[in-house]
């Protein structure tokens, strides 16, 4: 899988590159700012771009803007944005109306190599990866009439993992239950929240996010 890594901190960038290469990714280019990133994505058309949100030239959310542009102009390139902060607003903006090939993770997640690599792979394959913190914030929002209150604790866990973009298989592994049980929970959740069933993982993410952000 071909990857472009963009981060203005050389130390972190090198770290991420080494980690990805050790895990079998092909890092085709590195970028130090948003413009550089756009150029390299244009040139290499990678499967996935790993992008730090805070980058030159303005050192605000240039990375996010670049990511949105990549998503608009290169639909085949997945974008995984790394952020110092949990801002659900950014995550939702990034996802927009298509949850395929997109991810938003806290920067410290790179320390958990296995899960980070899994997320990069998922985004590169057209899936999605949302940080558990972001999902927790979305789920934890105070609501006037909260339909989430009807969910059982187990269903809540399943909902959160679904929102992160995990497949049924991954959810089953995480919760140490059978895939069959996960499917039953998913059906029940969709029923309780009055959502139309969505077969593909990334469509399911979008449905759940649309529900949560309302």
């Amino acid at each position: 899988m071909r990857v472009v890594v963009a981060d203005d901190s050389v130390l972190l960038r090198e770290g991420v590159v080494r980690l990805l290469e050790e895990s079998g990714f092909d890092v085709v280019a590195q970028a130090g700012d948003a413009d550089d990133l756009l150029r390299k994505v244009n040139a290499h058309k990678p499967d996935v771009a790993v992008v730090d949100i805070r980058m030159p030239p303005t050192n605000t959310d240039d990375g996010l803007r670049a990511a949105l542009q990549i998503r608009a102009t290169h639909p085949d390139t997945g974008v995984l944005v790394l952020s110092q902060y949990v801002e659900e607003g950014y995550a939702l903006e990034l996802v927009g109306d298509a949850a395929g090939g997109v991810g938003y993770l806290l920067k410290d997640r790179v320390a958990d190599v296995e899960r980070f690599v899994d997320s990069v792979k998922r985004v590169g394959e057209g899936g999605s990866a949302l940080d558990p913190e972001v999902v927790a914030q979305l789920v934890g929002r105070a609501r006037r009439e909260d339909p989430l209150a009807e969910l059982t604790p187990r269903e809540r866990e399943v909902l959160e993992l679904m929102a992160e973009g995990r497949s049924n298989q991954a959810i089953a592994e995480q919760l140490v239950i059978t895939e069959r049980a996960v499917e039953k929970h998913v059906t029940s959740i969709f029923g309780k929240l009055d959502l139309a069933p969505a077969p593909e993982d990334h469509r399911r993410v979008l449905a759940v996010l649309t529900f949560l952000r309302a």
Binding site: R54, T60, D61, E87, G89
Partner: peptide
Amino acid sequence: AVLSDRGLDTALEALAHRTPLP
């Protein structure tokens, strides 16, 4: 950070969502 990135509207939205109260 979101305040300087996106301004008051987005920052207040995030703040409102983080508050454990509707």
